[in-house]
Nucleic acid binder design. Structure first.
Length: 420
RNA sequence: GUGGGUGUAGCUCAGUUGGUUAGAGCGCAGGAUUGUGGCUCCUGAGGCCGAGGGUUCGACCCCCUCUACUCACCCCA
């Protein structure tokens, strides 16, 4: 291109029509479902102090180490575009003392997240999440209810292939001992581990369980599963959850390798995995984080949350075009006098409701009808010199091709009567 | 950060061993006897063939560099 075109930043994808209509349909369904379950929306800052994420997600995670959009502002504060929203929700929960409004808080959000990764199918630098968090409820009943709600969401969207994978990561009482145990195990086998996993032994040994390197998978096949190391409380929580899921008939599989890349999870973690998403196959994920509120300076509060990848979700939904909302009628003037006559009527009609279109370019009747058809209008109101003389507009039903005459004096009124 | 693939019209793509005016479908605009849409037909607009350099009498085509997009690794939503 000879002219310099300014384009979007790499990995920042924009949603154009008709895709934007499809997005809104899905988003509305999400909102309705969540609000039906008692969730309220939070609209949060996209930019946060960097330390929020370093402290919540974990300093040694990939997200914090190399995937954040971090920069200094004009007063040299380190700011970061949020890579996920849970940290921000917790920050807001503490900042505004939302816990004092009611004992249990259910909050949801919809919006963009930012990670500086190499873009690929299902992974973008700016991507969108639909997410929710529940504060103040530590019972496994909450875990179960939320998972069932998520499954219901997929169901209403006719998504079949989302499989629920579940695990428990234990809590502060039992995880440290397991971590040490696993460290020893990995240390003994470090020869057969990949470079990353060798590094993980000291930093974040659980992650080695999740490594996709075939050698590592091999080396880790008979690693001690965390399920055997859970304390009584965690074991009861997990088996309680599984029991409730069994009762409600929600299919799931326990996956002892499911570890997640964020440090704040305790007890339940889960992912909904979908087959045809390519390599990025998690469409939704989340879990319990009973320590995070306190770690970020609040009162000790149990919490459970999840996030759905919007783009990935839309990939699963197929591409039936959402019905575009279209104007009800086209005003079709022939000649300048007619255009001049119709303009105030058009404006007046649309003041009450968005019902008519009017082209200003004085095109031929044929091309105006063609346009009206493309716009999907139900009626075309044709007004040319003849109609002006006779004081009647020609009203053409675009579906049935029936044409009737309407006195110009009661054009607006007649049109409103035709509205469904 | 590391690999592979691909950049030709608004979109999806053809383009013969390098040869003169670069094509199709869709979309867009106009038309097919007076002022009537969808189907069909005709016509038209729209491309420095991603950018720069090189080889050659001659490059969309071959070589190099860059860049963008894309898929995968990695990581995750």
């Amino acid at each position: 291109m000879k002219k310099i075109q300014i384009k979007t930043v790499k990995g920042f994808n924009e949603i154009l029509p008709p895709e934007s209509f499809r997005w809104r349909v899905v988003e509305d369904k999400f909102r309705n479902l969540l609000e039906g379950y008692g969730f309220a929306e939070l609209r949060l800052a996209l930019l946060e102090p960097t330390e929020l994420f370093a402290r919540s997600i974990g300093g040694e995670t990939d997200i914090v180490e190399k995937e954040m959009y971090t920069f200094l502002d004009r007063s040299d504060r380190s700011l970061t575009l949020r890579p996920e929203a849970t940290a921000s929700v917790v920050r807001a929960y503490n900042q505004y003392s939302l816990g004092k409004l009611s004992e249990i808080n259910k909050l949801y959000y919809v919006g963009p997240m930012f990670r500086y990764e190499r873009p690929q199918k299902g992974r973008y630098r700016q991507f969108h999440q639909l997410g929710a968090e529940v504060f103040g409820e530590g019972s496994f009943y909450q875990d179960a209810e939320t998972l069932v709600m998520l499954a219901q969401f997929f169901h209403t969207l006719s998504i079949k292939g989302a499989a629920l994978h579940l695990n428990s990561l234990g809590c502060e009482a039992c995880r440290p001992a397991y971590r040490d145990h696993l460290k020893d195990y990995l240390y003994d086998r470090q020869e057969s581990l990949c470079e990353d996993c060798r590094r993980r032994i000291s930093e974040n040994p659980l992650r080695a369980l999740d490594c996709k390197n075939p050698q590592c998978r091999e080396a880790v096949t008979d690693a001690p599963p965390i399920s055997g190391a859970l304390c009584d409380g965690c074991r009861q929580h997990f088996s309680g959850l599984c029991g409730l899921l069994d009762d409600t008939g929600l299919d799931y599989q326990v996956n002892p390798r499911l570890v997640r890349g964020l440090d704040y999870y305790t007890r339940t973690t889960f992912e909904f995995l979908a087959g045809d998403l390519g390599a990025q196959n998690a469409v939704a994920a989340g879990g319990r984080y009973d320590r995070l509120v306190e770690e970020l300076g609040g009162k000790a509060t149990p919490a459970f949350g999840f996030a759905i990848g919007f783009e990935r979700l839309m990939m699963l939904i197929g591409s039936e075009v959402a019905p575009l909302s279209s104007p009800f009628a086209a005003l079709v003037p022939i000649g300048e006098e007619a255009l001049r006559y119709l303009f105030p009527i058009h404006v007046e009609l649309n003041r009450k409701a968005q019902v008519t279109t009017l082209g200003f370019q004085q095109k031929s009747l044929k091309s105006q009808l063609k346009k009206a058809d493309k716009d999907g209008v139900t009626y075309a109101l044709i007004v040319g010199p003849d109609e002006l003389n006779q004081g009647e507009a020609l009203c053409r039903n675009m579906r049935t091709k029936e044409q009737t005459r309407i006195p110009l004096s009661r054009l607006g009124e007649a049109l409103r009567e035709l509205l469904p």
